[in-house]
Structures are given as C-alpha cells and as structure tokens.
Amino acid sequence: MTLHHLLLILHLLAASIWVGGHLILSIRFLPRALKQNDPDIISNFEKQYEPIGMPALLLLIVTGIWMAYDFGLKVNHWFSFLSGIGMVISIKLILLLLTFAFAIHARFFVIPKLSKHNLKEMAVHIVAVTVIGVAMLILGSTIRYGGIH
C-alpha cells in the first residue's frame, strides 16, 4: 500500500463521518426539529456529533491538501483551473471556504441564540453544509478519472 492510498483511505473514512453525519442530521433530525419546532433536537445532535465531526473535517483538510501535493498541485496552482484534477481541487477548496463561512456564521450568530424563532435559519445552514459536503464527495469521485474536463 502506498502512502497516497493510505491518505485516500483516511480521506474517505473522514468523508464518511463528515458527510454521513450531515446527511443523518438533515434527513432524520432536522425534519423532526422543524415539525416539533424544537431546537433542542438539533443542539443535542450537535453535542454528540461535534467530537467526531470536527476531527473528521480536520482530517479531510489535511489528507486533501496532502493528496493535492501528491498530484503535483502546489499552493500556487490551487486556483488555476488548468487541469481536470486542478479543477476539482480548486472547486473543492472554494466549497471548503463556503463551508467555513456557514460554520462561522452559525457558530457566532445562529447557535448562541438558537431558539424556535431562528430554527429555520439554522435549517438553511444545515442543508447548505450537507449539500456542499455531498457535492465535494461527488467531485472527489471524479479524481479517479482525471477530474473534471
């Protein structure tokens, strides 16, 4: 097994936790929270998920950057969009920055005052981060075929 293969396995396991957790939150817990107008359902899930979700996200970032370097894409080429793999990595980095923007907004502006009154705003954040995660997963699957052409 090569180092790149090991990085890919770790990346896929972390993606399973990150994307899977958000899918479960979006499909199972969010509809119930909205139906019952109960933000505690979201808060309780987040408290349980965050200790494994955040390390998974960190592992995704580290392994993703490492694999980008393995593909010969140094920092100065990340947003060049010059190759199929470069296109995928560039789009995934943009989506990662968008995920951070949602996370920062949620952490500082939505979660501190999470209540029945802003539960729908939290729902928008949850669905957006879930869709972004699934999009990143789909984009990553194209690497095997040389990325997006």
Rank of each mutant, 00 (worst) to 15 (best):
L98H: 00
L93C: 09
F29N: 03
I52Q: 10
V62R: 04
V88N: 05
P51N: 12
F109E: 05
I65D: 06
I52M: 13
I17R: 08
E50V: 13
A106L: 04
L6W: 07
P55E: 03
F108R: 01
L6Y: 09
I52C: 10
L97A: 11
V19N: 02
G20M: 09
P55H: 09
L139T: 05
D40W: 08
I91H: 03
L82T: 10
L59E: 03
V134W: 08
M122R: 04
Y69N: 13
Q36V: 15
K35N: 09
I85K: 14
L57W: 10
S26Q: 02
I65T: 05
E121Q: 13
I91W: 02
G64M: 07
I24A: 14
G21Q: 04
M54R: 06
I104K: 04
A14E: 12
V134E: 04
H105D: 15
L25G: 01
K120Y: 06
L25K: 01
N118V: 00
E46G: 05
G84C: 12
F100V: 14
F108D: 00
F71E: 14
V129F: 00
L93W: 14
L96S: 01
L25C: 04
I91F: 08
R107H: 13
I27W: 11
A56H: 08
A15D: 09
I91Y: 05
F108L: 03
